[in-house]
């Protein structure tokens, strides 16, 4: 790896991973505890009274959604807090004055956030396997969904951080947009249970497609076609990447 841009990309990624591991108690442990509680309460205590969902035990049914939710939230949270922290602490200037092209800055931060999403995904899925009979019949689809989902929400977190002027701005989007979209994205229920209008609205929620693609990877079952799900995810990656690079080129929120 001798090309300067690849060295720079590896440097940002390494710095992000070092940060994730340095503050592991904030980055890796909370999702494990939260997911264990979800499995205990929704899966075991309440889930046993709900019965089957789409032909699976309720606990098995919610596993893909919970893992995907953890991946999405952690990817988003990693990049929004890290990039905004760099802006707030002004060490973003180290990168802005360097010869790095914009795609390296964006790529490095996204790679770090995706890796956190993967780490959390592996931890949460490992916990899920202890509580359920869920395994991974479609490993390629499972991995591809995690990577694409984490990339989309890393890019979204980056865009949020670029526009954020204070720490509150970084918290607003996850609270008022990301969490409702996640909970209404079919994590806890099958879309078949919803009335027509709610089902139609759910189909406009991008997280719904990620959860279902992931559910296909783990349970071999989905409410949507894989072609549509992956097409949409790739579309979001392209659109958000283009917007992120445009923001960096214009220096919006970064250069005066």
């Amino acid at each position: 790896m001798s090309h300067p841009n690849l060295v720079a990309l590896a440097t940002i990624t390494r710095r992000e991973v070092t940060r994730i591991l340095r503050i592991w108690a904030q980055t890796l442990v909370p999702p494990a505890i939260t997911m264990t509680l979800y499995f205990l309460i929704f899966g075991n205590l309440i889930g046993s009274r709900i019965g089957d969902m789409g032909g699976y035990t309720y606990m098995d049914f919610i596993v893909p959604g919970l893992v995907m939710m953890a991946v999405i939230q952690n990817s988003y949270g990693n990049i929004s807090s890290s990039f905004f922290g760099a802006k707030f602490g002004r060490h973003i200037e180290e990168m802005l004055v360097s010869p790095m092209p914009n795609w390296v800055i964006l790529g490095g931060y996204v790679a770090g956030a995706v890796l956190r999403g993967l780490m959390v995904g592996v931890i949460v899925l490992g916990i899920a396997m202890l509580f359920t009979r869920v395994r991974v019949p479609h490993p390629f689809i499972t991995l591809a969904t995690v990577l694409l989902g984490a990339t989309i929400f890393s890019l979204a977190g980056f865009i949020n951080a670029v526009f954020a002027k204070k720490f509150d701005d970084v918290a607003i989007v996850p609270t008022f947009i990301l969490t409702p979209l996640t909970y209404l994205g079919g994590v806890f229920y099958s879309v078949d249970l919803l009335p027509q209008w709610a089902s139609t609205m759910t189909h406009a929620n991008p997280i719904f497609y990620m959860v279902n693609a992931f559910r296909f990877g783990l349970l071999n079952d989905s409410d949507v076609s894989m072609t549509l799900a992956f097409g949409l995810m790739l579309g979001f990656v392209v659109a958000f990447s283009a917007f992120g690079l445009w923001l960096l080129k214009r220096g919006i929120g970064l250069r005066s």
Binding site: N5, V7, A8, T11, G89, E94, M100
Partner: peptide, 20 residues
């Protein structure tokens, strides 16, 4: 304008890394 939570050695190595 460096990251207060990093070590001087890492700050310097990372900065050089940004320049390839």
């Amino acid at each position: 304008n460096f990251n207060f939570f990093e070590k001087p050695f890492d700050i310097l190595c990372n900065y050089a890394g940004f320049y390839g």
